[in-house]
């Protein structure tokens, strides 16, 4: 029930990664409950199909997912280790690789930090108050999800590039934004903008304002209310948003590719280095870096599953109290 209502809100525009985020936030409890219901229902023949059809459907689903999703993942690790473990680690120890890893971590720290801060602020304004144009504002926050990554980079080239609006001024003052850390960080902040806010807003709206009002009526200040009452209630949702934000920040390719300038050892993030090495036929080195990113993705998925369970449990007492 909660799944459907939260998904089918009129306010939800084009949803990309975060759409699954808030889908998943609201769905586990519903999913678990219906798992039970399903276990009962499936045992009756009424709601199922004949055996052969069932077999074909399962076989199709498994083979499709195996060929299109599992195999590419396996290829990454197989290629990374195709010349042995020492070649793998040698590739990762290259100065260029190390510099890319450093830059990726730095960019992720900047963009996750800022989006965390502003995501929480935006979620507070949107979820805890009523005002006109709320759905429109949420649409605007979601906008980066529907913009092609290349365009997300392009907009900053138009602002800061040599022929951009402020390019000449920046050049005259010797400020480097494009083809440097600030540009890469900006493009990454742009593409990861919605994650934190979008994973908090449905959660905070569902929790309502009663606990905050209670805290205020007991004499708490705004900040005391936030840190002592709101934050403990949203911590798993917040972590969830940060997790997805971080995964995207580290893995972003298109937008960063446009603004980075590909200066070797300086402005290449890990995904960019994967591309460069691949195009230079250094397959082991390319897949070694790619394997790190793939592991990041896998860890993200595992933690995400754990967090979804936490969020699920967090909802239990709330449902009871109604």
């Amino acid at each position: 029930m909660s799944t459907q209502t939260s998904f089918v809100t009129p306010a939800t525009p084009l949803r990309t990664y975060a759409s699954t985020a808030d889908l998943a936030i609201s769905s586990p409890s519903a999913r678990r409950a219906s798992d039970r219901a399903r276990a009962v229902a499936v045992s009756k023949d009424l709601r199922s199909e004949p055996g052969p059809i069932r077999f074909i459907i399962i076989a199709l689903a498994i083979s499709f997912l195996t060929i299109f999703v599992v195999l590419p993942l396996v290829v990454v690790f197989a290629s990374a280790f195709s010349k042995g473990i020492s070649a793998y680690f040698a590739a990762l120890a290259e100065p260029e690789a190390l510099s890319a890893i450093r830059l990726t971590l730095l960019v992720a720290a900047i963009s996750v930090g800022l989006n965390l801060l502003f995501g929480v602020i935006a979620a507070w304004a949107i979820a805890k108050f009523d005002f006109r144009g709320k759905t429109f504002l949420i649409t605007l926050i979601d906008l980066p999800f529907s913009v092609s990554p290349v365009i997300s980079g392009l907009v900053f080239v138009l602002l800061f590039g040599a022929q951009g609006y402020w390019g000449t001024w920046l050049q005259a003052h010797n400020i480097h934004i494009l083809f440097a850390l600030p540009g890469i960080a900006l493009a990454t902040i742009f593409v990861t903008f919605p994650f934190v806010a979008r994973s908090l807003i449905p959660l905070m709206q569902e929790q309502g304002t009663q606990e905050e009002e209670a805290a205020i009526s007991l004499g708490a200040s705004g900040l005391q209310t936030f840190f002592r009452v709101t934050l403990p209630n949203i911590k798993w949702g917040l972590l969830y948003g940060v997790l997805l934000c971080n995964a995207r920040a580290m893995g972003e390719f298109g937008a960063v590719s446009v603004v980075s300038g590909h200066i070797r050892g300086e402005t290449n993030t890990m995904p960019l280095l994967v591309e460069i090495l691949y195009n230079e036929y250094q397959f082991v080195a390319s897949f070694a870096i790619a394997s790190l990113l793939a592991m990041l993705a896998l860890i993200t998925l595992v933690v995400k599953t754990v967090l979804e369970q936490r969020l699920d449990e967090g909802q239990m007492p709330r449902d009871e109290s109604k």
Binding site: E213, A214, S217, P232, S321
Partner: peptide, 14 residues
């Protein structure tokens, strides 16, 4: 300094 008891109690669940 007003004591307010909410309809659904609004106890801090954590």
């Amino acid at each position: 300094h007003v004591g307010f008891v909410f309809q659904h109690y609004a106890l801090f669940r954590h």
